[in-house]
């Protein structure tokens, strides 16, 4: 699904050039649940953003389903992003002025899903995530765990193939964190490829593979479990 060859990312800081990512070579298969770990400033989030096409690399090659992303223009990148990817953030990033229902519905609006279909899709997800009762509340009326639940629901509503998560449980206490990780595991079992960034060893154990980044280099890359057989829902 993903192939990175000699991927680099540098930024200018004053007169100096600072390398955030250095010669990254990486392959990710469909169905994997990859955890990226490493100390602060190691380049984890940068890597995740590049994978999610929110940022571009400054060198090297990035193939997504054999498409050379590094050669595409922004418009085409956006299309691919829109079609295949979902994002979950540490700070949830729900839209404060929209209700739970409307937040979850938003991605569908941008994909021109018909009103009737939207209703049923959102209703399904609300049901699946057990948040039907909360659908008319605004984000600030929810607990952190509930907000992140909505964040995940929103990220997967359009059935992305790749779910990218940046410290999804960073702001949650452990019980809520477990709930989210269980959910990720379940999604992965259903065939969604997941890349998460985390500091937590415990969270990493939910995945199939752990990549350790230090100073923009891959220091360790280890498969800890087999890719799950796809369970149809």
């Amino acid at each position: 699904m993903i192939v990175l060859k000699d991927l680099e990312k540098s930024i200018r800081s004053g007169l100096k050039k600072v390398w955030l990512l250095n010669q990254i070579n990486l392959e990710i298969q469909e169905g994997e649940f990859v955890t990226i770990m490493g100390p602060s400033g190691a380049g984890k989030t940068t890597l995740l953003n590049i994978l999610g096409m929110l940022e571009t690399s400054s060198g090297g090659e990035y193939y997504f389903y054999d498409e050379a992303i590094h050669r595409l223009n922004e418009r085409r990148r956006n299309e691919i992003h829109k079609e295949y990817m979902g994002f979950v953030f540490q700070a949830y990033h729900l839209i404060d002025d929209l209700t739970v229902y409307e937040n979850i519905e938003t991605p569908l609006l941008y994909r021109n899903v018909k009103s009737k279909d939207r209703k049923s899709i959102v209703a399904d997800v609300l049901d699946r995530f057990n948040i039907v009762a909360k659908k008319d509340l605004f984000p600030d009326q929810l607990s952190g765990g509930q907000q992140q639940l909505v964040g995940v629901a929103r990220a997967i509503i359009h059935k992305p193939r790749l779910l990218l998560a940046d410290e999804p449980t960073g702001n949650l206490h452990s019980k809520q964190g477990e709930q989210i990780m269980d959910l990720f595991k379940e999604l992965n079992d259903q065939g969604v490829t997941i890349v998460q960034v985390t500091h937590s060893e415990k969270n990493a154990e939910y995945g199939t593979r752990i990549i350790e980044l230090v100073d923009g280099n891959i220091k360790n890359d280890e498969v800890i479990r087999e890719i799950p057989k796809r369970i149809e829902v």
């Binding site: 999610g52 994002f87 990033h93 839209i95 941008y110």
Partner: peptide, 12 residues
């Protein structure tokens, strides 16, 4: 923040 979220969720 709203704009960022919308973009990540596919807004052109």
């Amino acid at each position: 923040q709203e704009i960022g979220v919308r973009k990540v969720n596919g807004a052109l």
